[in-house]
Design a protein around this nucleic acid. Structure first.
Length: 175
DNA sequence: ACAAAGATCCGT
DNA sequence: CGGATCTTTGTA
């Protein structure tokens, strides 16, 4: 049965972040630039950030100006500048008022969240971008064989105590 | 108002 | 291993 390549819809992102994060491995991240060119690559590394109780999550201090989009509807983009240099790409997941997001840490040929943000030419203008409707950034299904997924500790969050030991980083095994 | 830290990367 | 570079956050 012919099934068109399709963009992931709202319902995909409305599930719990621990379900969505591994499910995004192997899907295709698409970025269309102003000049008509396109960046397209399979996602191979994701990290889950889940709720105010997760001390590694930006929602650990409650709702703020920066993280408020995480409290809204799923399927929109949460970007923020880290170390004054790198734009980090996240997707909001779960129900409204449940602050969750997945950080895109790497795609095929472009590993590292900071480098990816640079390659995609992200900036504050992507804050709140809706992946379901956007003309410049979205995620598509992939018909290729499924990748084997490994779960490990999250990177760069050593300050989070117990939460640093959660295996909430999902990475394709052959990468 | 201020100071400290940060979901990183690069060059030495 | 330290510097770049600047926004966010709690009050160190």
């Amino acid at each position: 049965m012919a099934r068109r390549v399709s963009r992931l819809g709202r319902n995909f992102f409305e599930r719990d972040v621990l379900e969505v994060a591994p499910d995004l491995i192997g899907r295709v991240l698409v970025r269309q630039f102003e000049d008509g060119s396109e960046f397209r690559a399979r996602i191979v590394e994701m990290e889950a950030y889940r709720g105010e109780e997760d001390l590694a999550c930006h929602a650990r201090f409650g709702k703020t100006e920066r993280n408020k989009v995480m409290y809204g509807k799923a399927g929109v983009v949460y970007v923020y500048l880290i170390y004054g240099m790198y734009w980090m790409l996240n997707f909001v997941t779960g129900k409204a008022d449940e602050p969750q997001a997945v950080l895109v840490r790497g795609v095929e040929g472009m590993i590292g969240p900071g480098r990816l943000g640079k390659q995609l030419e992200l900036d504050g203008g992507f804050y709140g971008e809706d992946l379901v409707k956007s003309k410049r950034l979205w995620v598509e299904n992939c018909n290729d064989e499924k990748l084997e997924i490994e779960a490990t500790n999250r990177i760069g969050i050593g300050y989070a105590g117990e939460w640093a030991r959660k295996k909430w980083r999902f990475v394709a095994k052959n990468c």
